[in-house]
Amino acid sequence: MRIQLNEWQLYKNFDELANDILDMAKEFLPDRLIYLTSFTEQEQIILKLSETDTNIQLHEGMTVPLQETVCNRIDFASNAPLIFEDMRKEAKLDDLRLTLIQANINAYLGVPILLANGDPFGTLCAAHSEASEFSAKSIEMLQRIAKLFSYYLDLERMAFRDALTGLYNRQFLFRNYEAVSAAGALFFLDLDGFKQINDKLGHDTGDSVLREVAVRLEKFVQHHGGIAVRLGGDEFIVNMMDRTDVDEVRKLAEGLLDRLSTWDAQLEALRLSVSIGIVLYAANGDHKLDSLLKHADNALYRAKANGKNTYQF
């Protein structure tokens, strides 16, 4: 599961450590611009630069469509660096030529930053406006620095992730809600028939069901936006920012029901499905998350009372 845009902003000491790795990289590549990036599904974000007074046209916070970046050419599967010492001579970069000219980049070294599960976080890069060589030692040291940074990312990520499913946990939900001022819709999900699965099929099967629910919720938020959280047990939260139109929220709820109510014959025989309680919240409102969860839980209780496998506002 890829780190979401802005998740890293909740990490402790992120700015300090990011600046430290850029400083370390500058020790080995003093005449290059060093920069740190992160990826979403569609974009590359320039997170940090070793310096801002440079003739290379990059700035912190800059976003570039992923398909228009050199970093997208890195082979993350092999965890190998990408090196161009004179981009003007690289015919394979013809489709990026205008972008590179505008950025004034002619020499480039990109090192992948991978999380422990193999997902890409982004890159640690060195760039120069003129053609120039990268020594084997400087390449090796940039790789080592990127690896150290990935260890830090994994430690921070673990603090916000549920160990069983890999979804976000309660701590992340509260921290993320505090950082977001947009209006939205909060879905409180509880699996119907889950206790029977544990009682009749065993906890290993129950754990497998929870992991599969997580996979389906992750695909849902990747398609529709928002975040998916395992609150605990068989309770989950889907928080959808900028979704307040009731008809649209109904369609999203129906989509969640469809995703979580179709199982193999053994699980369907135990009537495995999901009930959902929904609460809408205003932008910059005075609603505390605890209060929203209580209202959503009340709506969930009514959905259960109305026969389950349904939703209530």
Rank of each mutant, 00 (worst) to 15 (best):
S261I: 02
L114Q: 14
N6T: 07
W8E: 10
H59A: 12
T63V: 15
L10A: 02
R302H: 14
H287M: 11
S138P: 07
R259N: 03
I45M: 12
I34M: 13
L186G: 13
S129H: 14
K92R: 10
L270N: 09
A183C: 03
A146M: 05
M240Y: 04
Q143H: 04
A77Q: 14
L82Q: 00
L66E: 06
L148Q: 08
N104A: 04
I227D: 13
Q266T: 12
I197M: 02
R88A: 10
M24L: 15
P81D: 03
F172M: 06
I227A: 03
E140D: 08
F76L: 04
G110C: 05
L289C: 10
M87A: 10
S129M: 09
S181E: 14
S181R: 13
L98F: 03
S138I: 01
H224F: 14
S273R: 01
L100Y: 06
D290K: 06
D199E: 06
L191I: 08
G202F: 02
L58N: 06
N198P: 10
R230E: 07
D264V: 00
E51Y: 06
D258W: 02
T244D: 08
R32I: 00
K48I: 01
F84Y: 15
T165N: 03
Y281E: 05
E248K: 13
D15C: 09
H223M: 04
S50N: 08
Q171R: 15
E235Y: 04
V238P: 05
D192S: 07
D258R: 10
I83A: 00
G122M: 09
N239Y: 09
E133P: 04
G225Q: 08
E140W: 00
L36E: 05
P120E: 00
T40M: 04
V213R: 02
D207Q: 01
D94I: 06
R271T: 11
M1C: 09
I139G: 10
S261D: 05
K308T: 04
L189H: 10
Q42A: 06
V249F: 02
R144N: 14
E60G: 13
S78E: 13
G225V: 12
K294M: 10
A131N: 06
H223N: 08
F174D: 12
Y152Q: 05
L155V: 15
F174V: 02
A179R: 13
S129A: 09
L260S: 11
D258C: 05
G184R: 10
W263P: 12
Y311T: 12
Q42N: 14
T40S: 15
K147F: 12
Q67M: 07
L201S: 04
G110R: 04
D20E: 15
W8N: 12
E43C: 08
Q312P: 03
Q57H: 14
D162K: 00
A18I: 05
I227N: 09
E130G: 04
L252N: 12
L36W: 08
L58G: 09
I237E: 06
N284W: 00
T205F: 01
E133W: 01
P81H: 01
D192L: 12
L49I: 09
